[in-house]
Each structure stands twice: as structure tokens, then as C-alpha cells.
Design a protein around this nucleic acid. Structure first.
Lengths: 138, 138
DNA sequence: TCGAACCGTGCCACGGATGTGAAGGTCAAG
DNA sequence: CTTGACCTTCACATCCGTGGCACGGTTCGA
């Protein structure tokens, strides 16, 4: 598969795919004519990268955790794992946990606030009930 | 309290506090001589901001959710909440959920990988079993 | 065979985010 | 007066994601 098709299927652009390659996030092969040659997996991989980026992870980090996530689980390439790699992963694992915890705490705070709002008075009799009584959330 | 003390107590710098102010994250008063005047709450607020930033939230977002989180829960200032604000909060709530979900999924993938590693062969008879048998995480 | 569409490289630049640094002036106190 | 904390403003650095342009090679169909 060539770059254009991958771009279409991942809703990105060739430009961005080359950028990701430069960042070490994907590593396509090359055809004889110099064209990049992508396999099927790339599409999923790119999607995962994008998802992680949207979640706020920097590419640096993604580069490091992706190898352990993307390749098929079956083929156990546990052989080449150095203790350093393990330490790195454990560190990232902890980092992610901290991040998740923080986000969860704050999400819950927002949730609680919203709940309180709804209970305390959806319309303080001010003059409001004029629009459609049902508030379609966006 | 002046900027230097806040900086010390939040482990930041005056520079950064001015920056946060420019971003709308804090809003100190001013003394007659032009010096910024911070109240006690600022310290906690700054800490929370930093935490959220570390968790990967952009300041834009923090600016908007912070007002609902920081001020004391008792004094219910539910009065001035427009429907727009509520919608905004709901949106952010959803966004946070998505983010958390994504991070959780990937953290678990890392966790699973690590577990598999440990089970498959902590040391392929190379020379390892020497450290404390219990792995204190981190 | 010719052109269009595609791919390649390299480079420059923008825009926003999070900061940091430095210059130059003011204020308060020893 | 000198020192240190504070003020403002301009600039710079980095990262991430993009866009653009130039310039050349490849593929494919009319």
C-alpha cells in the first residue's frame, strides 16, 4: 500500500505520515522505485498513534511504548528486552497511572458540580423557562 | 503575600506565576506600589494547575474548569451559571472520559505486556535471580 | 507519447502551547 | 547608596502538527 491510500484510510495526509515516520512512529518499507510501502497494520497503528496524541501523550513517549503494544501479541519477542526497557515501561506505566488518577479526580469534580447544579435548581425562577424545556445537550 | 513567597511555596518561579496570570489561571490583586498581592488560596490553586498541566490538560481547558473546582464547595454560586457553561462542562466531562479511557486502555496494555514478560521468563537462565524476590513497583 | 496524478526530498514558515531569559526601570529597606 | 525583590516588555527555545514550494522521478491511462 502506498502513502496516498494510507492517508485516505487514516484520514490524515501524506505529509503527516512522513512526519510520523520522521518521528519514528511508523517505519514503512521501500519499493524499488523509492516509494514507501506500507502494510495493513500501519493503518491501525496510525490510528492508535493519533488516539494517543489526542489523549495528550507526546510523541516521544508514544515512540517508546508503542513497540510493546502494536506488534501482534502472539509472536512473543520477549527475547531482546533489556532490563532498561523494562524499567522504562514500568516508569511509563506509573506515569500513566498518575495521569489517569489526576484526570479521574478532576472529571469527578466536574461531575459532582454538574450533579449539584442539576439538583440545586435547574431554573431559579428567574425568568428562564421560555426556550424549549428540554435541553438537548449540544 | 507577594510573588516571591508564592513562588517558593509552590515550587515555581515568579516568572511562571506571571505567566499563569497572563494565561488567566490566577488573578492576584495589586498593592498600591504595583506589586501583585496573592491570597492564601493561590498556593493551592497553583498546585492544582500544575497537576492538571502535568496530566496533559491544556491551559485553555484548565481555565474553564478551574472556576468550578477551586472555589470552596460551600458557597454555592450556582446562580450565574448559564446553559452555555453547563454545556461546556458536560463537553469537557466527556472529553476527560475519553481521555481517561484511552490512557487506561494503553496503560493496561503495558501492564499486560510487563506481566507476560515476568511470567515468560524473568531471566532466561542467564544469571539473574539475585535481587529481592518481591518486586516493589517503582 | 504525453499529461495527470502520484511519490520522493528538502526546506522554510506558521501557529499555538509551555515556558525561560534578559534588559531596563521602580520600590523598600539596611 | 546599594541590594534585592518587584515591575514590564520583548525575545527565544522547544514541541507538535501542518502547510507550502521547488524540483525531480514514476505510473498509468487516454
Amino acid at each position: 500500500m502506498r502513502i496516498g491510500e494510507v492517508a485516505r484510510r487514516t484520514e490524515t495526509t501524506p505529509r503527516l505520515l512522513r512526519y510520523y515516520e520522521a518521528q519514528g512512529l511508523i517505519a514503512p518499507g521501500r519499493a524499488e522505485n523509492g516509494y514507501r510501502e506500507y502494510d495493513e497494520d500501519t493503518v491501525g497503528r496510525v490510528r492508535q498513534v493519533r488516539e494517543l496524541l489526542r489523549a495528550g501523550l507526546p510523541t516521544r513517549l508514544i515512540v517508546r511504548i508503542l513497540p510493546c503494544l502494536s506488534t501482534p501479541r502472539e509472536s512473543v519477542r520477549f527475547s531482546g528486552v533489556t532490563p532498561e526497557t523494562v524499567a522504562l515501561l514500568e516508569e511509563e506505566h506509573a506515569r500513566l497511572s498518575a495521569r489517569i488518577e489526576c484526570l479521574t479526580r478532576n472529571r469527578e469534580a466536574i461531575g459532582a458540580y454538574l450533579t449539584a447544579l442539576r439538583e440545586a435548581g435547574p431554573a431559579p425562577a428567574e425568568r428562564a423557562p421560555d426556550r424549549e424545556p428540554d435541553g438537548a445537550a449540544r
